[in-house]
Design a protein around this nucleic acid. Structure first.
Lengths: 90, 90
DNA sequence: TATACATTTAGAAATTTATCTAAATGTATA
DNA sequence: TATACATTTAGATAAATTTCTAAATGTATA
């Protein structure tokens, strides 16, 4: 779970859409999958890539597994982008 | 040249190192390639991916082709990240 | 405890990506 | 203009990624 995995996770359109969905609140894997036209197994794979990238966290609640955004990693990526842009060139 | 291509370009370690190099000023393709242990052709491919992602621009100066950072795309990515993080949660 | 439901995991196929070598292109110069 | 230099493009191969179906796991409930 590092920078590489985080950016890799963000580089896929489906996974970015998942992140956008989670902005509005935590969701179960099933509810997330319902937003896409791929199988639940495929969405589950994407969720695991997002988890490896530290962009989401999951918790089980009975039958359901809830996913939520983890924004701490986002800060790290923003810091790199700001550095890249250059403090002087603002 | 859109969001997708920009993030895909950034998701590779070699390409991020190229971006980091260019922070310190414009460089020729050859000078960039010299920093890596892969062939010039491979580095040239990475440069073309970065160009497609709008992260660098190139200009020919005689025999040489200079590459430079293009930071306008970076702003767009930061805007998405800020949005993702949520204005309320700051 | 048997069954159903929510979700993940395994394994395979198709697509994309990274990398290489060899050839092509563009520019400068002897 | 022939040659050399800087770089890209083409075509091939290997590795990684996306996606699927089928099977496994974990939890709740009749």
């Amino acid at each position: 779970m590092g920078f590489q995995e985080s950016l890799k996770a963000m580089s896929d359109k489906t996974r970015r859409e998942i992140l956008n969905l989670l902005k509005n609140g935590d969701m179960t894997a099933g509810d997330i999958a319902a937003h896409f036209s791929m199988t639940q197994a495929t969405v589950s794979h994407h969720l695991s890539v997002l988890k490896d990238g530290g962009l989401v966290m999951d918790r089980r609640d009975g039958k359901y597994i809830f996913y939520e955004l983890n924004t701490s990693v986002i800060e790290e990526i923003m810091a790199w982008l700001i550095e890249l842009k250059g403090v002087d060139k603002q």
